[in-house]
Design a protein around this nucleic acid. Sequence first.
DNA 1: CTTTAGATCGTCT
DNA 2: GACGATCTAAAGG
Length: 208
Amino acid sequence: MSQNVVPHSYFLKENVVALAKELLGKRVVTVIDGERVSGIINETEAYAGVIDKASHAYGNRRTKRTEIMYKQGGHIYVYLCYGIHSLLNIVTNRRDIPHAILIRSIVPDFGLNTMCDRRGILNLKNIANGPGKVAQALGILPQHTGLLLGEKKEHEIIWIEEGISVDDKLIEATPRIGIDYAEEDKHRPWRFVIPASEIHKKIEAHEN
DNA sequence: CTTTAGATCGTCT
DNA sequence: GACGATCTAAAGG
């Protein structure tokens, strides 16, 4: 069932922007609280560390919170935003290069019931289309910071699978969301999106 | 459909 | 002490 797992070494790649784009179409899987759920990634943002004013690690900022970003690629960084929302990031690049990719949206393809329970009943279409919703649907919390992709810890595990192929022409690149403070870096087109409808087509075609 | 306000707390200044 | 890599409900058009 879990063939085509992407090894965490995949996230050692240097180009975080290219990597964020490549993540589209891949599948995130979690087993947390004994519940397995997964979804196809359809929106990401790249955060280019030291040189990127939108990044928590801008200017080589090293604090207790950002320390995880300086580990090798493939680690999980979960940021608590507005005191309420957990945001799921994957650290990339080699040790001491604090790059990260924010997963902003997934199209659920397994464990819909569990996701609905975790989120509270809502429009199925909007169950994981936003960074806070993604983490909540997957059962991810700030305490999961430090997990390495594919490595089980206390019966909890998160990994990435190849998922589905995506047509490059469907990918839209836009400025990142919610980073007005980032001055000249706020316009960089480092957010990548595929319409959820396109993912649905692929998922259905695959099942038939 | 769009706009707006309120929730809520760890982190850094 | 201020402020977020956000979401929702409610109110208005």
